[in-house]
Design a protein around this nucleic acid. Sequence first.
DNA 1: CTGAAAGCGCTAACAC
DNA 2: GTGTTAGCGCTTTCAG
Lengths: 341, 341
Amino acid sequence: MVRIKDIADELGVSATTVSNVIHGRTNRVSKETIKKVNEALSKGNYVPNMGGVLLSQNNSKIIGVVLNNDMRYENKILQNPFIVEIISALEENIRNAGFFTMLYNANSIVDVAKIATMWNVSGLIVFGFMEEDYVNLRDMIKTPFVSIDGTYSKDINGIINVGIDDFEGAYNMGKYLIRKGHKDILFLSDNDDGCDNKRKLGLKKAMKEEGLKFTENNHRLIPAMEISRRAYYPELLSELRKSNKYTALFFASDAYAIEAMNYFMDNGVNVPNDISIVGFDDIKHATIVRPRLTTVRQNMPLKAAMAVNALLNIIHKYKISTRNIVLPVEIVERDSVASLE
Amino acid sequence: MVRIKDIADELGVSATTVSNVIHGRTNRVSKETIKKVNEALSKGNYVPNMGGVLLSQNNSKIIGVVLNNDMRYENKILQNPFIVEIISALEENIRNAGFFTMLYNANSIVDVAKIATMWNVSGLIVFGFMEEDYVNLRDMIKTPFVSIDGTYSKDINGIINVGIDDFEGAYNMGKYLIRKGHKDILFLSDNDDGCDNKRKLGLKKAMKEEGLKFTENNHRLIPAMEISRRAYYPELLSELRKSNKYTALFFASDAYAIEAMNYFMDNGVNVPNDISIVGFDDIKHATIVRPRLTTVRQNMPLKAAMAVNALLNIIHKYKISTRNIVLPVEIVERDSVASLE
DNA sequence: CTGAAAGCGCTAACAC
DNA sequence: GTGTTAGCGCTTTCAG
């Protein structure tokens, strides 16, 4: 393993000079030296030792991609298809910017801070925590970070977030459903904060606008734990059959929509003829089930690109124009909604 | 950020002592000092600066998880559901062992070597390269690594691989299909080396044993690029309809099996009544499509655990008993195969 | 049982 | 244009 000093000795120049040409601080080096050094560098197959870099600068070139290893997700958040689709895009953007991706499932925000300081991470992309966690994180470390899909009660100084227009997406989906003749829509989610809450509110607004009632009866909280959730579907189905009230089910995520849809179909319910089902996210799975799922699409690669880009902007100290980047969202109409005319 | 020296100064001991208690080299330190140091450490919230560690030792505590960013996969290997399911398990095992996961999509094996040396990576888990790449890697770096699903013409000194019994799995699936009355089975894969080749050979053996012919006609090479592959399915379908020869399609992976099955079903083919379809891997998708896909299951979490475990064994210089770890595989019978009696 | 000192590879302030 | 030097935080050898 060849070091800067080796190159310097070989060429009879100083380490500083070599370091300077490596970093393109080339205005104070003669053309000739530059050439010599560059040749020696590539001939010797020079690769920087990041230990040295890390120690001498405050810059590791590592971007931490950190997920919340919340018990709620049974330590399987990385198996969530939604998360998974974004990791891929994140890694690509990070790599193309010349950084390295450190993937970490954190148990708490303190963990995140720990990783950040021990590695002198250049920046962090963080998922799945709550507003107060992000605020704490900001106060604990000076490392720049951007949260993805964070929901904040207000603009928070020093925190950049990239999210999607959950409200608008759900609102549009609500309008779409109503246009299709649905008047009794049930919204299902595993919690009532953050994105899911916004999605609920979007639907509510759409219904209100069309003179339809949306009360807490139109919202079911379903279990986040897979095993309990699967146990819940039969209950849901029998309730639906009994009351015969709802014509459409709006799940807060595709993953749940698909699970439920499959359960229903397997038990003799015809989707969409007996009941319509929609989701949110447009994960890959939505196109491989039958009927194909009508849903609200978010552009994951774009989300990843925006997040990495925003982070790089802070790292490079460019001016930041937006604190809260909201990406648009679109309805994708497929086969899981019936027209009720 | 508190350093070892800070703790040492505060306590009036030397940095060496602090370092010693941190690393449990505690046999030459008095009980009392140990206690003092440990208290100061946790009170001061000491977190090691990995730059220092990296520089002074040859040990970064980083495990590189490296994929082959082959053009063949359109730079989307991380979107391959099969890969994705294993990354999750890998990260968990790495983290639980006290290491860090660096995720990297490499364009070539030289890239892999570069990352390994620049980060002084403790070990590498590598996917998707060819035998000669792995051999080159072994010769380029001294970093221990284990390959996943590598196929080797022979036992190669210094290379550990964890894979599954592709041959046996396909053989058993062949037997199963034959037992169900299928005599004309078409095998489809996007290449004819490595795992896919073994899977083909397994099927071939099963057919031979039952007195059935398996010629190159029973094997179709399908395009690896998604767009070409989708263009190929109509062709395949019309050929199948014309010849009316094959009663079962054995795809080398679930991903392709599901794609094709959906295409067929969307075009009026009834699976399994008109034709049976099976895959290999048992990815999540296999259970969410209808009919549920009958396939060969490999245990991804186990595979990940074995790979990390094997790697840690080399890193810690424990004796290694097996060069080539072959994990068992099992048929999971679902609804995509008809009984032809 | 404890400490002093050197060194890992790189960078940057400063001097020439 | 180029070089000297100190220092980043940690480990480790060796001496006491």
